[in-house]
Write a protein that binds this DNA or RNA. Structure first.
Lengths: 194, 194
DNA sequence: ATTATCTATAGATCTATAGATAATGC
DNA sequence: ATTATCTATAGATCTATAGATAATGC
């Protein structure tokens, strides 16, 4: 392999693939995965549909690359998550409606039968719930102030993040996503008197 | 109009339309709206695709009928909602994965551009948030025990319901949707000491 | 040689329209 | 007369394969 200043063939190729993935993220945000045609993605990077298939041999292969991108989006080394980082992530998300729309659309489609992202999301949520439980345990120990275990609070935390995204995408003016999320975090940290 | 024992033409026609809507709910659960072909819906009620179009002149007209059905699903007269009814609704939902899948898929798709259900969901959430705020106010007055106003708690309540549905649909074994929702209601009712 | 891209095209779909035919109900 | 349903079909798409052509890099 050569490491000159000029781009190698491989580097150029990977850059092209990255361009295509970015275009795919956009088109999926606009039309969902089923509605996203390879031709529409190809056009956005100045290729024919068949030219695109040189880089990703099937539509599903392109989706896999898109999902990898999703993992990069909020990937923080497992051990470094903290609740306040989560609040920052939500604030950051509120500035990037496009990417949130892409993955909200994909999540919605993924519950249909035989959808190629179904397994991905199933496994992702298992992982994310475990991560969130660990974060809560690091913050509060084996019981939150309100008496819930981290394992029982984790699915609620994840649900609030996702559910707020849908409300916010549909009506950004009326829904203060980061504010609502902070309200929820406050709720989680409050002591029960029951 | 005649009101005999035998079905009138109109009654028969409405029954046919209802059959078609039921079939559409199923097909949308399996493939989403964009993926649901009129031919697949028609086949399920023993019609040709063109026969179906006699009852619903366009695919969108069929979707409108499906969305009306959604409103019927959890319609309780506004003034009669109570928090414990909400918990029962979630428990009931957990026994009807099909219908939950239909509307979770539709919600997901609806955030994409120009989706014919986008306005419907946007308006629906505005209404549901207002309803939930009213329910919380009836239960707790102008402040929940934790200090939140009903208006700030309402989007969280709605988000938890929706978000839990996705997690549960993707992995019903691992996610106790009604249990998690009750945990959240408990959280909402707890007094803050801060 | 390998990589990137194109043209051509097969083979499936999809929604919707036009118009015929049969059955139903005043 | 109206309603329900069918056959035929137009006109768009869609994904994927086959194979040609041009450019790049050892």
């Amino acid at each position: 392999m050569s490491y000159g200043d000029a781009m190698t063939t491989r580097a150029r190729s990977e850059e092209r693939r990255a361009e295509i993935v970015r275009a795919a993220l956009e088109v999926i945000a606009e039309r969902g995965y089923r509605g996203a045609s390879l031709a529409a993605v190809a056009e956005r990077v100045g290729l024919t549909q068949q030219g695109l298939l040189h880089h990703f041999p099937t539509k599903e292969a392109l989706l896999v690359a898109v999902l990898r991108e999703r993992d990069r989006w909020d990937a923080v080394p497992d051990s470094q998550w903290r609740l306040d980082l989560l609040a920052s992530l939500v604030e950051y998300n509120a500035m990037r409606p496009g990417i949130i729309q892409t993955f909200s659309a994909l999540l919605g489609e993924s519950v249909t039968e035989g959808h190629p992202a179904r397994d991905y999301f199933g496994e992702r949520y298992t992982r994310v719930r475990a991560n969130m439980a660990a974060v809560l345990r690091a913050e509060y120990g084996d019981r939150l102030p309100n008496g819930l275990t981290p394992e029982r609070a984790a699915p609620l935390l994840v649900a609030v993040m996702d559910g707020l995204q849908y409300q916010w995408l549909l009506d950004p003016e009326s829904v203060d996503m980061p504010g609502a999320f902070r309200d929820f975090l406050t709720l989680l940290g409050e002591r029960s008197d029951r």
